[in-house]
């Protein structure tokens, strides 16, 4: 019986993994296909001859010979699509700055809420409640304000919105970490001779390091893939991020599935690399093992 159960369990796990990974598999293979195979029926499961033209189109500047030959291979209507390099740069600047800002501000806020009940229960709930508005509801008044102060389509403009949105997650994650640390730890550090501020940075922060990494990964992934705000706040194209750029490839000359897939796969890389680096902290972090509870 237990053997049968084992088999069933394995099948379920494989099935779940297959469902989760199918889009990525499809994206990876599509990025190596020429237009004829993008939406062929019956589907082409693996490109007959893998081609890198899609990547060349994404990364090369218009007018270069390499790009021209790639465009020729892809055929019809691709001359309009610009290089995607600026979008990647935009995404990195905006997502990284927003993540650093949100983790910094959110950690301080979480400490204050955890230790001093700053603002009472109301503040804590209220910060979480900010995540319950649909983005569109906040976007309209923000667009009005941003256009007045000329912040539309700027890096810091979008970065600030991301910070505001993701700070709630950071507070939420970090508060549970601070709750786990006995106040005695910092009290003892103070009696050893540290000021309260130094005790926080030298003693408390190192203990919640794992939590900060978990919170950083979480907010980075959210900011990196965010679409709705990016679409509304980067209309001019100067601060356009990858998700918006991908969607705009669709509008160019027909459906450019190949370059879209190539850019999508590139967009996956930072999140995967970051996730891989912090994974060993992440397991500990998300299970709240900051201070082992042997009291």
């Amino acid at each position: 019986m237990s053997r049968l159960w084992k088999v069933v369990r394995t099948i379920i796990a494989v099935l779940a993994a297959a469902i989760a990974f199918f889009p990525i598999y499809w994206m990876a293979t599509t990025s190596l296909k020429l237009p004829g195979e993008w939406s062929a029926y019956p589907p082409v499961w693996f490109p007959t001859t893998p081609r890198i033209e899609n990547y060349i189109v994404i990364f090369s500047e218009p007018g270069t010979p390499l790009r021209e030959s790639a465009l020729q291979a892809l055929g019809r209507g691709f001359s309009a699509s610009p290089s995607a390099v600026p979008y990647i740069t935009n995404s990195i600047i905006i997502a990284v700055s927003a993540t650093i800002g949100a983790v910094f501000i959110g950690t301080l806020a979480a400490y204050s809420i955890s230790r001093y009940r700053t603002g009472g229960l109301f503040t804590y709930i209220f910060i979480l409640a900010t995540r319950m508005f649909p983005p569109v509801a906040i976007a309209i008044p923000l667009i009005v304000v941003y256009s007045l102060i000329r912040w539309l389509d700027t890096h810091w403009g979008l970065s600030l919105i991301y910070m505001a949105v993701s700070v709630a997650y950071v507070v939420w994650i970090m508060k549970t970490f601070f709750d786990e640390i006995p106040k005695d730890i910092e009290d003892s550090a103070i009696l050893f001779g540290l000021s309260h501020v130094r005790a926080f940075f030298k003693v408390v922060l190192p203990i919640v390091k794992n939590g900060m990494l978990a919170a950083a990964l979480f907010t980075f992934v959210i900011n990196w893939g965010e679409y709705a705000f990016a679409l509304m706040f980067t209309v001019g194209g100067r601060a356009t991020t990858i998700p918006v750029a991908i969607s705009q490839l669709q509008l160019g000359g027909g459906y450019q599935y190949g370059p879209m897939a190539a850019l999508g796969l590139i967009a996956l890389i930072p999140a995967v690399v970051f996730g891989y680096i912090v994974q060993k902290y992440l397991v500990v972090g998300l299970t709240l093992g900051a201070v082992k509870g042997r009291r």
Binding site: P182, D184, I185, D187, S188, L191, V203, K292, R294, R295
Partner: peptide, 10 residues
Amino acid sequence: MVFQSYAIFY
């Protein structure tokens, strides 16, 4: 000061 929870760094 010796705290109830010891407050040592694990």
